[in-house]
């Protein structure tokens, strides 16, 4: 789904990423882990196009990330800390994002249709969205999960967790007045809203109460089951163990290891992911000092 090869990024003299190669497989939940400053955020932001890499190639579903904005139509992103315009109400924020998506898809669709079919995947995405637009108003699609492929949906927004979070009571409040937990909930709703094929979740449960946290996790797993590719970062190893299948561990801008959770546990003989990673790092004497920071 996502290919990253030979990715380099420097911030001044600091080497944030050096020659990183990662492949994130479709339909799975991959956790990107590592201590602070290891390059997790840089990696994710590079994939999202927020950070411009110095060299290397990133492709998402075959589309090369290179100043191109349209591939982001299939991406949902839930940042660690979401901030929207302070004085807009929750409803307005949701409307705004929908507006922007709509306006992007119409203008892009138009330009895409004039292109040749050399970029099949691009056109497919656009067409799909259009199909949805045309048949808006159909009931929500509860299609069965398929391996590595999100079933076609009708383009109506996914408001499932909006309802489960009970955000209706908050919908006319200005964003400024929302509590941290409610801001996080809004952010989650917006990430799932367009039924993305790829989801980036940055510390998704931070600030959420246990009930909401469970709702969100259920939703994440349900999305995975529908075939959505999910990239996750978290400091809570139990959460990672609960959700993720694959772990990408970054250290000082390089991939330190890449394993499935099951492989890690087996390899280290530990029962929890936290201990497994500690053991994995403990083998390398020069980084033992950093183990504490790793969690």
């Amino acid at each position: 789904m996502i290919q990253v090869s030979k990715l380099n990024k420097n911030y001044g003299t600091v080497q944030a990423l050096s020659s990183v190669d990662v492949e994130i497989e479709p339909g799975r939940i991959t956790a990107v882990l590592g201590p602070n400053g290891a390059g997790k955020t840089t990696l994710i932001k590079s994939i999202l196009g927020l950070v411009k890499p110095d060299s290397g190639v990133i492709t998402v579903d075959g589309i090369r990330v290179n100043g191109e904005s349209r591939y982001r139509e299939m991406i949902g992103y839930m940042p660690q800390l979401a901030r929207y315009p302070e004085n807009l109400t929750v409803t307005e924020i949701v409307d705004m994002i929908r507006d922007i998506r709509k306006s992007a898809s119409t203008s892009e669709g138009r330009s895409a249709s004039t292109r040749t079919d050399s970029h099949n995947s691009k056109n497919r995405t656009a067409d799909k969205f259009h199909a949805g637009e045309k048949s808006a108003g159909r009931p929500e699609n509860n299609g069965k999960p398929a391996e590595g492929q999100v079933p076609a949906h009708d383009g109506s927004p996914d408001l499932e967790i909006w309802e489960r979070f009970g955000l209706d009571s908050e919908k006319d409040k200005a964003f400024r007045t929302l509590s941290g937990g409610n801001r996080q909930k809004v952010s989650a709703v917006l990430a799932f809203l367009f039924r993305p094929r790829v989801l980036f979740l940055d510390e998704p449960t931070t600030g959420l109460d246990p009930v909401s946290s469970s709702i969100l996790k259920d939703k994440i797993l349900a999305e995975r089951d529908r075939g959505t590719t999910i990239v996750l970062t978290s400091h809570i190893m139990s959460e990672v163990q609960e959700l993720a299948e694959q772990v990408v561990y970054l250290l000082e801008g390089e991939i330190y290891f890449e394993r499935t959770v099951a492989e890690l546990l087996e390899e280290t003989g530990q029962s929890t992911l936290e201990r497994a990673i500690a053991v994995k790092l403990g083998r390398q004497p020069k980084v033992t000092a950093e183990t504490g920071a790793t969690s």
């Binding site: 927020l50 904005s69 901030r83 302070e86 922007i100 998506r101 992007a104 892009e108 917006l190």
Partner: peptide, 17 residues
């Protein structure tokens, strides 16, 4: 400065810089 996160968010949508 206050809009930094917001701009990041928008840039994750299909919005051109």
């Amino acid at each position: 400065y206050n809009a930094r996160e917001y701009m990041e968010l928008l840039l994750c949508h299909p919005v051109k810089r």
